[in-house]
């Protein structure tokens, strides 16, 4: 574990920028989100969670897959530098690991559906993720429900704890270890530093709400598909896409061809199972025409289907869906209701 003085942070970021396309939390038009930074001054760490999740760095809302005209098909080049993300939260770092199971070549999947998404891979594949531990979790945070916590290093390449006057950095992956080896201006963390970090971690954990045991959730859900619970759970939902679009793990997309007179492009665009057109078939029939069917799908995908396919919940407890929902449909309450049914 190394110690980087805050005085040396500017230098650290500058060195990072020289090698990587660096993303960090920024304030853009009054919204706190991840942005490509060109200097340390761009970073804004005033809020705990960014309002949009960092999934958009690796899986953007609208991505041109290729363009075409009379001369042929062209795939846009990827970024020249590998991506480094400073200031990611543990929940978001874990969400990328989940998305990697879907888009990444190394995803744990049956052989017959092995697939590597080149657009994801060229960004996430050689990226360097710095997770900065949450010292003051929000009331919407529920990462502890998923056997994680505010000082969980999973999903990071380098795990960072802010201990006030310095950052402590610990390599989590081989990539992270390589990077820390070559880092200038840092020293080894002392025992005192480590103790301080442990106290901060303990305090952070104590600020979280009570954990709900999700051990039976998947089994419960399996028996509920046709039950009336979805009527009450979905009653207030207005079927907008605010939850899905701010979610760090929702990854459904639509493919559109935008063409005009001999040229065009094929674009991959975020989609949401809340939208009526999401499952509308060419015949005009919609197998999920009702709100409750769509709400059920969202809950099932996160807490049942993904568990069956990939061995974990498709939710990190980041709480963004809770803060943005226009009708305060709190996913924690939905889970509790399912478990109590």
């Amino acid at each position: 574990m190394i110690r980087l003085e805050k005085d040396g942070f500017k230098n650290f970021i500058e060195e990072l920028i020289a090698e990587y396309a660096v993303f960090a939390p920024v304030m853009k038009d009054g919204k706190h989100m991840f942005g490509n930074i060109s200097s340390v001054e761009d970073i804004d760490s005033s809020r705990l969670n960014t309002e949009m999740s960092p999934k958009e760095i690796f899986f953007p809302h609208s991505e041109v897959l290729f363009e075409y005209d009379e001369d042929g098909i062209r795939v846009a080049d990827g970024e020249k530098k590998p991506i480094a993300v400073w200031g990611m939260r543990g929940c978001d770092a874990r969400s990328l690991r989940m998305l990697d199971k879907v888009f990444g070549g190394d995803g744990e999947r049956p052989d017959n559906i092995k697939f590597e998404d080149p657009y994801w891979e060229r960004r996430y594949g050689d990226s360097l993720i710095f997770s900065v531990a949450c010292n003051e979790p929000l009331s919407t945070c529920f990462c502890n429900w998923f056997d994680s916590g505010p000082h969980d290093s999973a999903g990071a390449d380098i795990f960072v704890v802010d201990i006030g006057d310095a950052f402590l950095m610990d390599a989590v992956s081989g990539k992270g270890e390589e990077f820390l080896k070559g880092l200038s201006g840092s020293g080894k963390a002392s025992e005192k530093d480590k103790k301080k970090a442990a106290v901060i971690a303990e305090e952070a954990v104590s600020l979280l709400g009570k954990k709900t045991d999700l051990g039976e959730l998947n089994d419960k859900l399996k028996g509920l598909f046709h039950k009336p619970i979805w009527d009450s759970v979905s009653a207030k939902c207005v079927n907008c896409g605010a939850c899905s679009f701010t979610c760090s793990t929702c990854h459904c997309f639509d493919i559109q061809d935008e063409s005009r007179k001999g040229r065009g492009k094929r674009v991959r665009i975020w989609d949401a199972c809340m939208f009526p057109i999401f499952t509308k078939e060419a015949s005009g029939h919609n197998p999920r025409s009702l709100s409750k069917e769509r709400v059920r799908q969202r809950v099932m995908h996160k807490y049942s289907y993904f568990v069956d396919n990939h061995g974990e919940f498709l939710c990190t407890g980041c709480g963004r869906c809770i803060s943005v929902c226009p009708v305060n449909l709190d996913i924690r309450e939905v889970i509790r209701e399912v478990l109590a049914s």
């Binding site: 038009d29 919204k31 949009m52 809302h61 207005v238 079927n239 907008c240 896409g241 605010a242 899905s244 679009f245 975020w270 949401a272 939208f275 009526p276 057109i277 509308k280 943005v324 226009p326 009708v327």
Partner: peptide, 29 residues
């Protein structure tokens, strides 16, 4: 500046009691 922030989640449309077309024009394909 304002509309470039839009993420097309349609929360504005969906909470609006005046916006009740059975099929919104943005959902037509």
């Amino acid at each position: 500046q304002e509309y470039s922030k839009c993420i097309r989640c349609y929360a504005c449309r969906n909470v609006c009691p005046s916006c009740y077309c059975n099929e919104c024009f943005v959902d037509q394909n």
